[in-house]
Design a protein around this nucleic acid. Structure first.
Lengths: 237, 237
DNA sequence: TCCCCGGCTGATTGGCGAATCAAGCAGCTG
DNA sequence: CAGCTGCTTGATTCGCCAATCAGCCGGGGA
């Protein structure tokens, strides 16, 4: 398949074939051993190229990860934004659409999603390159705005914090995908994926849409005192 | 797992003061810069002890993290298990209890929780020390069993996958806490924490308890075809 | 008083892996 | 053909940091 096309094919052909090979290898290796757990040599071997070539296309190891992440994440974000900001759709449709986007991404490229979940969502905040952490937080904020708008039109219960709604939704999606990534869900067929997606969207919606009764809340209000589940407080101090 | 301890623990065996100081410093430094982003020297400086002393109490850097994690996580797990396996409580009480345990842990020691979320929940699976990854997954499995039992007694909707319910609950809690850890929620007062905890538990319960009507599901069933939110499939490749 | 012993110190070492670089090699051009 | 250009190679370099170790210090026992 790699029919040595002359270097000057100019026309359109964006980034070189080699570069993409290396990027692909990086995704696979990062997914398998994690960013910190692998060496550049691993990526080079996986890609079948010389060690030094990686540095011809990428300034350093960090830029390699940055590129992997940026590529994958920006695709996800733009799809998500399209869904979240489509004013002709109901909140319910939007939530289902977001779940669609996330699970579709996993179906298409599970390893890339694994890298995103591992290295983006949870990069140690602190001094770390802020862009990664920030990208994730920005996405949640965007989603929070979507919930806030829905609240204004009465599509979302008024007593909920939009930011928390966003966290809930992404938490559910993320750990749902994690269940697949980590092997907790042993059935990874497309059908199982689809079922999971539906259950997540549906459960979430039932929880936050303005429904008729609020049984849980009602029963909680009179039970909270008698509940025997209060922890003793203080785990070690 | 402390085959290391020197013969000196004497009677009551209060682990050395120094050791605890170092552990505490490790939590703070790990929370600030991440495990990979810090040097042993940082921990030693934070603790105000000599570099070498860290190695007097811990075999190596990894055992230091292992100890931090094990201590914090085992406390959380045992509390959680007590809640999840208390047969006299309703599912609703258990779910609220689990949220209690998690948020209380955060209230007591936010930095420790941050380390747990960052380094345990999402350690790159691969070659990584399995015990961390495993601890997290085991907890979800335990919770899944709780949901399965609740399903048998009709306390949980029959059409839900227990494992996914567990993922949802933990995803919601984890990202809820992440919202605080990462600064997304600017109000971190105890009251705000409490509100968040309640919203999470309540939303989750509304979503999974067998409620009267199922508005979301009903409307979805007839809307799914006409929904305009279907992504085009294929993000790159 | 001196010596021993265990907690403690921090400069030194060794290895690992990121990043460099000088030299190959293929295709193109004159 | 000769010489240029720019992708490609992988051994070498270099800095960093985990882990070691030789020795210090202070208390308590003889």
């Amino acid at each position: 398949m790699s029919q040595r096309q002359s270097k000057s094919e100019a026309a359109g052909n964006r980034e070189s074939e080699r570069r993409r090979t290396i990027l692909r290898a990086a995704i696979d290796v990062f997914a398998r051993k994690g960013y910190h757990g692998c060496r550049i040599a691993d990526v080079a071997r996986e890609a079948g190229v010389a060690y030094g070539l990686v540095y011809h296309y990428f300034k350093n190891k960090d830029e390699l990860l940055e590129t992997v992440v940026e590529t994958g994440w920006s695709g996800f974000v733009s799809r998500m934004r399209a869904v979240a900001e489509d004013e002709s759709a109901s909140l319910e449709q939007k939530v289902r659409g977001i779940a669609d986007v996330a699970f579709e991404a996993y179906r298409v490229d599970p390893r890339a999603v694994k890298v995103l979940i591992l290295e983006v969502a949870r990069s140690p905040a602190g001094t770390q390159v802020v862009s990664r952490q920030q990208a994730f937080l920005d996405t949640i904020r965007m989603s929070a705005e979507m919930f806030a708008r829905a609240q204004a039109t009465g599509e979302l219960r008024a007593d909920l914090d939009p930011m928390l709604c966003a966290s809930l939704l992404f938490g559910a999606i993320e750990l749902g995908l994690t269940a697949f990534v980590s092997g907790l869900m042993e059935d990874r067929s497309p059908e199982a994926l689809d079922r999971a997606k539906l259950q997540i969207a549906e459960s979430f919606l039932r929880g936050v849409l303005p429904g008729a009764a609020t049984p849980a809340e009602a029963s909680w209000k009179q039970e909270k005192v008698s509940s025997g589940t209060r922890p003793k407080a203080g785990k070690r101090s």
